[in-house]
C-alpha cells in the first residue's frame, strides 16, 4: 500500500493506494499543504479484484465511510477517485462544524457563501473570484463553527468541470493544473491548485456576510429569498445538520437570522462578478 497524507483546513486525510501514480499526482498538486501526523480519515484506492489490479485497472473507493453502490473508476481517473473519497469522508463523517455543500470566498474578514445545485456555477464562481481579489475558501464545503458561527475554510483542490476548465486556463497560473481527465462520470474534470494565499491562510475563518443562490444560464436578475426558504434549502445543503442535533439547529438558525441571502441569475462570469460586487456593497 502506497501512502499519502494531507491536511486540508481542519481535516486530515490518509490515502492508501495499490498504485503509485494517483498518489504522485496528489503529492504534486498538494505540495504546499501541511502533512498531518494523525489523520482524521483513511481512504483506500484498491483494485476491484485481483485481476483488475493489472488488466483494465479499475479503482474501488474504500475507506472509513463508504457508499455501498459507489461505482469504480478507471485507473486513469485515480486522482478523481481520491478526491471523491475525501469528499465522502467529510460528507458522511464530519461532526465538528455544520457542514454546508457550498463554495466560499473572503474579503476584509467577511465571507461570501454560494450554494446551489450542481451546475449552478457556485464552484466556478468561487474559483474565478478567488483569482480576482478575493481569498478562495473552498468550492465544495463550507464549515460553520458551532460556537462562533464563523465560516471555516476547506480549500481542497478546485475541481473544474467542462467549460470551466477553459475559462480558468485563461485566468490561473500555469503549473497549477492537474491532468485533464476526459469523460469521467462527472464530465471532463481538471483539478486546479487554489491560489497560494488560500493555502497559506487555510486556518483563518471569516464572518459569513452574504449568502447567494446562483443560477447559471438566465438573464441577470436578483431576487430576495425568504428566511424560511433559506433555512429549508440549507438543511438540504447540509449533510450533518440532523446528526448535530440541537447544536446544528442553533447554528443554522443563527446563520439564517444574521446572513442576508439573495438569488442571482447570470449568463457569464462578467455578469456574475458585477452582481456579486453590487450585492456585496449593499449587504456585506
Amino acid at each position: 500500500m502506497h501512502e499519502f497524507r494531507v491536511q486540508v483546513g481542519p481535516a486530515a486525510f490518509r490515502i492508501g493506494s495499490q498504485w503509485k501514480r494517483p498518489l504522485d499526482q496528489l503529492a504534486e498538486l498538494y505540495r504546499d499543504y501541511p502533512v498531518p501526523a494523525i489523520p482524521d480519515y483513511t481512504v483506500r484506492l484498491e483494485p476491484v479484484s485481483l485481476l483488475r489490479r493489472f488488466v483494465r485497472q479499475s479503482v474501488a473507493i474504500n475507506g472509513d465511510y463508504m457508499l455501498p453502490d459507489a461505482a469504480p473508476l478507471p485507473l486513469a481517473q485515480g486522482l478523481l477517485a481520491a478526491e471523491m473519497a475525501m469528499n465522502l469522508q467529510m460528507a458522511l463523517g464530519w461532526r465538528r462544524h455544520l457542514l454546508l455543500h457550498a463554495s466560499a470566498v473572503e474579503k476584509d474578514g467577511k465571507a461570501l457563501i454560494m450554494t446551489g445545485q450542481s451546475g449552478s456555477g457556485k464552484s466556478t464562481l468561487a474559483a474565478m473570484l478567488g483569482h480576482r481579489g478575493w481569498r478562495f475558501m473552498g468550492d465544495e464545503f463550507v464549515l460553520v463553527d458551532l460556537d462562533s458561527g464563523d465560516a471555516v475554510p476547506f480549500p481542497r483542490l478546485i475541481s473544474l468541470k467542462n467549460q470551466a476548465i477553459g475559462a480558468m486556463l485563461a485566468t490561473a497560473l500555469d503549473g497549477r493544473f492537474g491532468p485533464l481527465m476526459p469523460a469521467t462520470p462527472k464530465g471532463d474534470i481538471r483539478h486546479l491548485v487554489p491560489p497560494s494565499d488560500a493555502i497559506a491562510h487555510m486556518a483563518r475563518p471569516a464572518k459569513p456576510a452574504l449568502l447567494l443562490f446562483p443560477s447559471f444560464g438566465f438573464d441577470p436578475a436578483v431576487r430576495d429569498v425568504a428566511p424560511s426558504e433559506v433555512f429549508m434549502r440549507l438543511t438540504q445543503a447540509s449533510t450533518n445538520y440532523v446528526a448535530l442535533g440541537e447544536r446544528g439547529f442553533t447554528t443554522l438558525t443563527r446563520f439564517v437570522q444574521t446572513v442576508p441571502a439573495r438569488a442571482i441569475d447570470y449568463r457569464d462570469g462578467i455578469e456574475a462578478e458585477a452582481l456579486v460586487n453590487q450585492l456585496w456593497a449593499e449587504c456585506a
Partner: peptide
C-alpha cells in the same frame, strides 16, 4: 490523548449520541 485524537474522539461521541437519539 494527543490533540488530533481528542478531536476525533469528540466527533465519535457526537455520532454516538446521534445514533442513540
Amino acid at each position: 490523548v494527543p490533540d488530533a485524537v481528542s478531536d476525533i474522539l469528540a466527533e465519535a461521541r457526537v455520532n454516538a449520541e446521534y445514533q442513540r437519539r
